[in-house]
């Protein structure tokens, strides 16, 4: 049985909630569902299976995918993410290419429209967004929540339209393909893709005069500097960070500094309980 047939034979609910497809050469293929993983087939994935998936996902442009893999993954049509592992080809200390692909992780893009709507009232004041930090562990749904909140604010769901500038360094939020966002980030959102966050924030501030700057994953001191600069310009901030909760944030030097700088007044913590996501808003002031 082919991988496609196996995927199509999944129960309807699993197909709807599937988050990732993971193929590892020599091991059975798996589908990642909320809170669990299940085998898709009882046979091992072959090298040919992997190359076929890459061929289909990249529209017969495997070379393009393999040469762009140094960024960790590539965004394909539909906003899905294709992560690859194999033998890295190095040149002058940089990863130039990948050969002998051994694993593929296909993360299925989901919009989950409306997940941020119930919290919108708590995250805005008279329709104007407050500076908000979204916290969750990896795979917790930070990006999905950020995307929905950006869309709602941009489309005026809070009662006031907000001009949003989105620094989408890794292309995960809007998933632009040929310049067109594959996922809905709202009608008043300008997206800068592929640019390091610190530079992107400054460029967006200068060129797009936004009301709110949204950034996915603050990971470096430079990102923090850019957020400070944006706050000094009177722009509202929306960002995500990897952590279990605010206490976990305080254990990490960068995030501790972030909290102490009081750039954010609200935090949304996402936790997964029995396969379901729960959202909690906290005041950081």
């Amino acid at each position: 049985m082919s991988l496609r047939q196996a995927a199509l034979r999944l129960p309807a609910e699993d197909r709807l909630t599937a988050e990732e497809l993971r193929l590892r050469a020599g091991r059975p293929p798996c589908v990642v569902l909320p809170g669990r993983e299940r085998e898709l087939l009882d046979r091992a994935v072959t090298g040919s299976d992997i190359m076929s998936v890459i061929e289909i996902a990249t529209k017969a442009s495997a070379h393009w995918a393999l040469s762009n893999v140094c960024s960790g993954f590539i965004t394909i049509e539909g906003g899905h993410r294709l992560g690859l592992c194999g033998t890295a080809v190095m040149k002058e200390g940089d990863v130039m290419n990948l050969r002998d692909v051994s694993s593929v992780c296909l993360r299925i893009a989901k919009e989950n429209r409306g997940i941020a709507a119930p919290l919108l009232g708590q995250l805005t004041k008279s329709g104007v967004p407050t500076d908000t930090l979204i916290i969750a562990p990896p795979g917790g749904g930070k990006t999905t929540f950020l995307r929905d909140l950006v869309r709602l604010l941009s489309d005026g769901a809070s009662g006031t339209y907000t001009r949003v500038a989105l620094a989408d360094e890794r292309g995960e939020v809007a998933a632009c393909c040929a310049g067109v966002p594959q996922l809905d980030v709202g009608s008043r959102t300008d997206v800068l893709t592929g640019c390091p966050k610190d530079k992107a924030v400054m460029m967006l501030l200068r060129s797009m005069s936004p009301g709110l700057v949204a950034v996915d994953e603050i990971t470096a001191p430079e990102d923090l500097g850019a957020m400070r600069a944006a706050a000094n310009c009177g722009v509202r901030l929306l960002a995500t960070a990897h952590a279990e909760d605010t206490r976990d944030l305080l254990r990490r030097p960068l995030y501790k500094e972030l909290l102490e700088s009081r750039l954010f007044s609200k935090a949304v913590t996402i936790t997964v309980v029995h396969g379901k996501r729960e959202y909690r808003v906290e005041d950081l002031d």
């Binding site: 190359m51 017969a60 495997a62 070379h63 040469s67 050969r99």
Partner: peptide, 10 residues
């Protein structure tokens, strides 16, 4: 080979 393998192979 085209479209399916790395750039060198293609």
């Amino acid at each position: 080979i085209l479209g399916r393998y790395g750039i060198e192979a293609q």
